[in-house]
Amino acid sequence: MPLAIRRLVAQPSFYATAGAVLVWLVIVAHSHGVGGGAVISGALNYSVFFALVGVGQMLVMASGAGNIDLSIPANITLAAYLSSGQMQGANAGMAAGFAIGLLSGVIIGLANALLILALRIPPMVATLASGLVIESFCFAYSRVSVAKPAPLLVSFTTQRLAGIPLVVIAAIVASAAVIAVLKRSLFGRHIFACGQNMTAAWLAGVNVRRTRVFAYVACSTFAALAGILFAGFTGGPSLNMGSEFLLSSIAVVVIGGTNVAGGQASVVGTWSASIFLFLLLTMLNVFQVDPGLKNVITGALIIAVLALGKANRPQAQ
């Protein structure tokens, strides 16, 4: 096999991308070509939120084995409520709405880092607990405030430029920035160093604490951003809007080729996996598959992608 093709197949993101393309072809074949472009547009439009959240979760997971952020659903919901509550359905409040939503994300990230690094609580437990606390804030806030996103935000999440939703273009730009940071910047090196061997990284002079704090803050900020945008997309916040993001944020990271043990990450893979999962759902719905069977098929296909991609993932110690 020519070198270029071998290199392509060796990418961690290859199987997720191949899976997405394959599923799309199956859908298009079934509908005899009708709506193929609309399927891609729709898939991008819906996957972008999962991809953004996935990129954040990816940064946390890359910083070391056992690192995970389970407060994402509550984070998304709180950012959605706070930003929409600030906007109150008017364009004038949009900037303030974004500011307050993103700020809440940063604060949550710092709080998580405090629990994990200062109090030495395992990340899974710490973020689960902080998620519950944030959920209560959401509950209280939802009762006292009218929360509606600004019309400009709503159209931003649905308008398309040459068939691609504007929000997707913006998210792709943000993701490209993350790739640049991971590949070119010192912070990127430090994250992977921590993930591969925290002791060695510390001995080599990497400020492990600071790196991990940045990872958690970046994750929760991405989640908050996704929450603000998602509220615009769904017409307003709701208390259980974040529930689907918990497991999907982990699924898209892992299926996308990022190593759960840390030390290596794939942004392209995270995106491909988000699109793959949405197209999978599309395929099952279009084929009118029995609901019981849907979960079985979804699980089987995810296992297939992970098994095939096993060779591409370096085994971290």
Partner: peptide
């Protein structure tokens, strides 16, 4: 959830 599910089938 309804929004997401409906969106999957609409294009076709």
């Amino acid at each position: 959830i309804a929004q997401r599910q409906v969106a999957t089938v609409l294009p076709t």
